[in-house]
Computed example of a mutant assay.
Amino acid sequence: MIRTLPLLLAVLASPALAQGLTDLDEVDRQVSAFVGQPTPPVDRRLRLARCTAPLALDWYGNGRQAVQVRCPVPAGWTLYVAMPAAAAAAAAPPLVQRGDSVTIQVGGDGWAVSQPGEALEAGAAGAWIKVRGLVPKAPVLRGRVLRPGLVGVDLP
């Protein structure tokens, strides 16, 4: 009995085990495996109820700025793990390649104007790239990749 007391106290002293909380180290491992590279750790101050089902992971945001980690049970929880820009860019496949023909679109509430152009950089969904119209001596513009072949330019 005396030999097992320190072990029992150590187990009970573990906040995650004593309160039935999710192991945040396991969340970190699953997010890193999902992204395919090391990722920033989740905030250790979080106290998430233990999930009785496997965690559901998916990308969040057009530019894959975060990973959504969800406990898919009734009254479960959802956590968003922000990705560094380099990790998100590396994980997102480019929708536009350098030299691709694109449509450059400028628009507002209820209107849109577009023209053909050329991508001067590759970019994934949501990435800002340089584009140029096809007319001679067209200025270089910065636009956001909206979908394959479409780049949106903001008005100044």
Rank of each mutant, 00 (worst) to 15 (best):
R3V: 09
P6T: 09
P6K: 07
L9W: 11
L12S: 04
A13F: 02
S14Y: 11
P15Q: 14
P15H: 14
L17F: 15
L21W: 15
L21S: 08
L21F: 08
L21D: 05
T22E: 15
D23S: 02
D23A: 04
D25G: 12
D25M: 07
E26K: 05
Q30E: 15
Q30S: 13
V31N: 13
V31E: 10
S32N: 06
A33M: 07
F34P: 04
F34N: 03
G36L: 01
G36D: 02
G36P: 01
Q37V: 04
D43C: 03
D43Q: 07
R44H: 02
R45N: 05
L48N: 13
L48W: 11
C51M: 12
C51I: 12
T52F: 15
T52M: 14
A53N: 09
A56C: 08
D58L: 09
D58A: 13
W59Y: 05
Y60S: 15
G61Y: 12
G61E: 10
G63W: 09
R64T: 02
R64D: 00
R64I: 01
R64H: 05
Q65R: 04
A66W: 05
A66I: 02
V67H: 03
Q68R: 15
P72M: 13
V73P: 09
A75H: 13
A75Q: 12
G76F: 06
W77L: 11
V81F: 07
M83N: 03
P84K: 08
A85E: 06
A87Y: 02
A88S: 13
A88C: 04
A90Q: 15
A92S: 13
A92M: 05
P93F: 04
P94V: 04
V96N: 00
Q97F: 01
R98Y: 04
D100G: 05
S101E: 15
S101Y: 05
V102P: 06
T103P: 09
I104G: 08
G107C: 05
G107V: 03
G108K: 14
D109P: 12
D109L: 13
G110V: 10
G110R: 10
G110M: 12
W111D: 14
W111A: 11
W111R: 11
V113M: 15
P116Y: 12
G117N: 03
E118D: 15
A119N: 01
A119V: 01
A119T: 01
A119F: 02
L120N: 10
E121H: 00
E121P: 00
G123D: 00
A124D: 12
A125R: 08
A125V: 02
A127D: 07
W128I: 09
I129D: 00
V131K: 03
V131I: 06
R132S: 06
G133L: 04
L134T: 14
V135E: 13
P136Y: 11
K137G: 12
A138D: 11
A138R: 07
L141N: 08
L141D: 08
R142V: 10
R142Q: 11
G143T: 00
R144G: 00
R144S: 03
V145F: 01
L146M: 08
L146Y: 02
P148E: 00
G149R: 13
G149E: 11
L150T: 10
V151S: 01
G152R: 00
G152W: 00
D154F: 03
P156F: 01
